Simulated assay, not measured.
Amino acid sequence: MKFSVLISVYYKEQSSFLDRALSSIWHDQSVKPSQIVLVCDGILTDELYECISKWQDTLKDMFNVVKLERNVGLADALRIGLNECRYELVARMDSDDVSVPDRFEKQIEFFKTHDVDVCGGCVAEFDTDENCIYAYKKVPQNHDEIVKFAKFRNPINHPSVMFKKSSVFAVDSYERMLYFEDYYLWVKMMMQEMKFYNMKEVLVKMRAGQGQLNRRAGGQYALCEFKFLKRLYDVRFLKFHEFVLNAAIKFAIRIMPRTIIKRIYLILRE
């Protein structure tokens, strides 16, 4: 069963992280992808270009590199990249994460036997050493639980998903929604009664740590989160009391000291 892998990279990424991510989806996998689409979101560093050139020499026509002249952001980069994916099944992967060796094998087998549009899984979080896991980001397994969970938190680990391209196109693909591009896509698909499932197993090791925490704290993130919640209310995914409760709790969390936010994240992952 053929499938594509979709990745976006921009200039702040480290070449060693990208190299490890690509290695994990090619050299390490028990079932290899039929195509890898890498979107270069704007001008990259020389080190990243060298890494990409090495993989082009290795993978040849299986490795499609889409070079954008300027940085357009994750939503637009993935939207453009998805148009280049040849196959109905598309796996997402971040440019600094590590897919576990049997990830694609498990997801492909699940799509063969179940009628779903999106299949994700749990992720293991690490800081610098992928063998030193400090937390697990678990998500609800079954569709009804996923939809219920989505009222308050993102129910899908984006770097772990495999989805049907036609289903994503049916809701107009990724849209600009800073920090919440994937979450909004899932909501749009849920509102069209598309089916979701999360495996209990860890499918991806995710590079998290202090950098991720810093991105998810402070006034700018709080404002973007409020706009996102307002959009969910406007499209009638959230009821008014759900919108108010979400906005109040999440704004309070975002402006807390980062040490407290880190502790809250760890509690949520226990």
Rank of each mutant, 00 (worst) to 15 (best):
Met1Lys: 07
Met1Gly: 07
Lys2Phe: 00
Lys2Met: 00
Ile7Leu: 04
Glu13Cys: 13
Glu13Lys: 15
Leu18Thr: 07
Arg20Trp: 01
Ala21Thr: 13
Ala21Gln: 05
Ser24Met: 02
His27Cys: 06
Val31Met: 03
Lys32Cys: 03
Ile36Arg: 05
Cys40Ala: 13
Asp41Cys: 07
Gly42Trp: 05
Ile43Met: 02
Ile43Gly: 02
Asp46Tyr: 09
Glu47Cys: 06
Thr58Ala: 10
Lys60Thr: 06
Met62Gly: 11
Arg70Val: 11
Val72Arg: 05
Ala75Trp: 07
Ala75Val: 10
Asp76Thr: 14
Ala77Glu: 11
Arg79Asn: 13
Asn83Asp: 15
Asn83Trp: 09
Arg92Leu: 09
Met93Phe: 08
Ser95Thr: 13
Ser95Leu: 04
Asp97Val: 02
Lys106Cys: 04
Glu109Gly: 11
Asp115Trp: 06
Val118Leu: 01
Cys119Glu: 04
Gly120Ile: 01
Gly121Lys: 01
Glu125Pro: 00
Phe126Asn: 05
Thr128Lys: 13
Thr128Glu: 09
Glu130Arg: 14
Tyr134Cys: 10
Gln141His: 14
Asn142Asp: 11
Asp144Ile: 06
Ile146Tyr: 01
Lys151Pro: 03
Lys151Asn: 08
Lys151Met: 06
Phe152Arg: 12
Arg153Trp: 07
Ser160Ile: 10
Phe163Cys: 03
Ser166Cys: 06
Val171Asp: 03
Arg176Asp: 14
Met177Asp: 13
Glu181Cys: 01
Val187Ser: 04
Met190His: 04
Met190Pro: 01
Gln192Cys: 12
Gln192Trp: 08
Glu193Asp: 13
Lys200Arg: 12
Val204Gln: 01
Val204Thr: 10
Gly209Ser: 12
Asn214Lys: 15
Arg215Val: 09
Arg216Ile: 12
Gly218Val: 00
Gly219Trp: 05
Gln220Leu: 00
Cys224Gln: 08
Cys224His: 14
Phe226Asp: 10
Lys227Gly: 07
Arg231Thr: 11
Leu232Tyr: 05
Val235Pro: 05
Glu242Lys: 15
Phe243Gln: 08
Val244Tyr: 01
Val244Asn: 02
Val244Thr: 08
Leu245Glu: 11
Asn246Tyr: 12
Lys250Met: 00
Ala252Lys: 15
Ala252Asn: 13
Ile253His: 11
Arg258Phe: 04
Lys262Phe: 10
Arg263Met: 08
Ile264Thr: 10
Tyr265Asn: 14
Leu266Glu: 08
